[in-house]
Computed example of a mutant assay.
Amino acid sequence: MGLCAIIADDHPMCREAARVALSLVAPDADVIQAGSLGEVLSETRSVDLVILDLGLPDSRGIASLIDVARDRPSTPILIVSGTDRPDAEARAAANGAAGFVSKAAPIDTLVSAIRTVADGGTHFTPGLEPAAPDGTEKRLSTLTPAEARVLRAMRNGDLNKQIAYELGLSEITIKQHVKAILRKLDVVNRTQAILMLHDVHP
C-alpha cells in the first residue's frame, strides 16, 4: 500500500499545488482533501502524513496544529503557511509539527519538505530554535479531543444544549466537559476560554 496523506487547506488551488508536489514524491499516494479542521478531525482513516495550512476557517493558527497533533500523535504534520508572523515556524516546531514551508516558497522546496517529513525526518530553516510553547499553548494541549471539540463549538456562542445536539452527546456530558475546560485552561468563564483560542492565532 502506498502513502496516504491528508491535505488540509481551505483554498482549492493551494490543495492542488500540494497534491502535485506530493505526487512528485509518491505518484501512487492516496490523497484525502480537507477544507476545514473539522474535516481533518472527522477523518477516521489511518494516514502517513498531514499537510496542514494554519489558516483554516474553523480553527486558525497554532490551535489547529495542536488539535491535529493531539488527534494523530504518531502522524507527521507538515505545515504549509501563508502567515507573515516571524515566529510562526518556531511555534509550529514547538507544538508538534515535523516541518514548515512558507506558501511563498518555490514548489521544489515543498517537494523536498514532503519527501523529508514522509521519510520520518524534519524540515525547518537550518538553525531554527523551536519556541518554547507559551502558557496558553501548553494549557490548550492538555485538553482531550472531546474537550477540544466542545471548546471549538463554544466559540460559535452555542449553548450547552446546542453543543450537545451538534456533537451527539448529552447535555450533562457537555457541562462536564465545559467544567474540565475551564479548570485546565485556568479561566473562570466561557468567554475567557474562547479568548485563549484567539491568543494562539499566528
Rank of each mutant, 00 (worst) to 15 (best):
71 D>Y: 07
164 A>R: 11
109 T>P: 04
152 R>A: 03
198 H>G: 07
61 G>Y: 00
96 G>S: 07
172 I>T: 14
150 V>N: 03
60 R>G: 15
22 L>F: 06
52 L>P: 07
139 R>V: 01
188 V>R: 10
119 D>L: 10
36 S>N: 03
56 L>G: 04
128 L>D: 10
140 L>D: 04
164 A>G: 08
190 R>I: 10
152 R>G: 01
12 P>Q: 05
197 L>C: 00
148 A>I: 03
79 I>F: 06
170 S>R: 08
57 P>V: 09
23 S>K: 14
13 M>K: 12
13 M>S: 13
45 R>N: 11
66 I>V: 10
67 D>Q: 11
166 E>S: 13
138 K>C: 02
88 A>L: 13
132 A>N: 15
200 V>R: 06
66 I>D: 00
70 R>G: 00
28 D>Q: 14
115 R>S: 15
62 I>P: 08
29 A>C: 08
168 G>P: 06
101 V>M: 07
14 C>E: 15
158 D>W: 14
169 L>M: 14
100 F>A: 13
130 P>H: 02
140 L>R: 06
38 G>R: 03
125 T>A: 12
136 T>E: 00
154 M>Y: 08
192 Q>E: 10
79 I>M: 06
186 D>Y: 00
24 L>E: 09
123 H>M: 11
133 P>I: 04
198 H>Q: 12
66 I>M: 03
113 A>I: 05
57 P>K: 06
91 R>W: 13
55 G>D: 13
32 I>V: 15
124 F>R: 09
95 N>W: 00
141 S>Q: 12
158 D>T: 12
79 I>C: 05
29 A>F: 06
18 A>D: 07
71 D>S: 14
154 M>Q: 14
12 P>Y: 05
